[in-house]
Design a protein around this nucleic acid. Structure first.
Lengths: 250, 250
DNA sequence: CAGTGGTCTAGACCACTTA
DNA sequence: AAGTGGTCTAGACCACTGA
């Protein structure tokens, strides 16, 4: 950092990274390593600038971009804080089912069970694991506004969640990502989803109380952690008679 | 603008808007009014700063935010340009169907027809029009990689697209948004989509060459123009046996 | 009241593009 | 060579927060 700072400007070279980008990387590494914990305040802009030997404007640009990625939150007059996975934040970013009036569906949990196992080929591929690596599988049914509306199969690498397999299924909270962060230091930052329409199989039909063959929306999600690696694979099948999946494109 | 600039800082008041926000608004108005046309270069940062009596840094912040919204494009060494709706841009932002290998499906058009009419209640509501306002309806079947895969009903306010109704349906291009902007000065900036799983009806089944009752994904989209008003309602039903709808969440 | 982030300014050097 | 956006700096005043 200092070398570039002494030059006083952008510098050059093939693999050059702007100063504010280097500041960003440094802060991301500190957060990912747990030196800065969720909810904790970062040093102020002035302090960071002094520590790193760059100007306040450069630190500001780095922090602004981290805030845009929801990795930190800035609060005027208070400071900059490592983002915390709250239930409302998790729902806002990762739960997109709304009822006809545009109200976010409020999910609850039912019939959850978790088991240990070793990764199938599909699981290993999705989670970027070695063949037969240990995984934990969670099956559950979720209700929306009281009606059984989703069946979910969740698969996570056992290595990231030591002890999770021993939890009884019904002890699992409704929004897992909050627990992932609080109890295991695993922060979900992004997710890739693939949606398709499928026909309800016999098991789906029974759990969701619909006729076999009913069209369901299948949501195939891989959640990515702060280090850029997959941390969860989730396959959901959803009734869309009372709720729709909403996206804003721009 | 000048009054705030003279003060030299943020200012105050209940409905205060930062200087860079005012610059943004001004530029958006100029683009929306057609004073700055798609593809055209904006004045340079220095020129804008001089014209508006603000510093270059303030103009820069405004332009950076407009670039983040894809309203302008910045090219180092060349200038800042009003964003143009190209086919690849339209597909990138508004077409989210990918095949199993992760390649974007390449859509083509078939059996397009367009007719004038007056808005139904649902159409008037979606498009924020008066009851029975004149609309143009386009029906078409689209293929993905050669296979008939989508049926679409597109509805637009006739007032925004004078003369469009007289176009024969098969003269319509594959990506409409490019034509909306080039021929009618209507720029689509964002869209709200609602997705659900539905069963193919008799007409769907015939057009898509699938059995009646096959699960299809229905995409209900309202496209919003640069002035913030709805400019198109599009209802699509899609086969998702070979393609999936992909979203990245963060 | 001191400390924080939010806004604004002025000026510098750089890399890139075009001519 | 001239002009553009990209980066970086230094310093100012502001609104907001909490002790």
């Amino acid at each position: 950092m200092a070398d570039t700072a002494e030059a006083g400007q952008a510098g050059s070279g093939p693999d050059f990274r702007p100063l504010y980008g280097q500041v960003k990387d440094l802060l991301v590494r500190r957060i990912a390593a747990g030196e800065l914990r969720p909810g904790e305040a970062l040093p102020s802009e002035m302090r960071l600038a002094a520590e790193l030997g760059v100007s306040q404007g450069t630190v500001r640009k780095a922090l602004d971009e981290l805030a845009a990625q929801h990795l930190v939150e800035r609060r005027q007059g208070r400071g900059t804080f490592v983002a915390e996975q709250t239930e409302s934040r998790a729902l806002f970013h990762f739960f997109h089912l709304f009822d006809a009036e545009g109200q976010r569906g409020s999910p609850a949990c039912r019939e959850a069970s978790s088991k240990s196992g070793s990764a199938s080929r599909a699981e290993a591929k999705r989670l970027d694991l070695a063949a037969k690596a240990p995984v934990i599988r969670i099956d559950r049914v979720r209700t929306l506004d009281g009606v059984p509306s989703m069946v979910e199969r969740i698969v996570v690498p056992a290595g990231l969640f030591p002890g999770l397999a021993e939890q009884p299924g019904d002890a699992l909270p409704n929004t897992l990502y909050e627990m992932f962060q609080r109890d295991y230091g695993v922060t979900v930052t992004t997710a890739d989803e693939q949606l398709r329409a499928v026909a309800a199989g016999a098991a789906d039909a029974r759990k969701l109380d619909v006729p076999e063959g009913t069209p369901l929306m299948e949501i195939d999600r891989v959640a990515i952690g702060i280090r850029g690696r997959p941390v969860e694979w989730r396959l959901s099948r959803v009734r869309t008679d009372a709720h729709t999946y909403r996206v804003r494109l721009d």
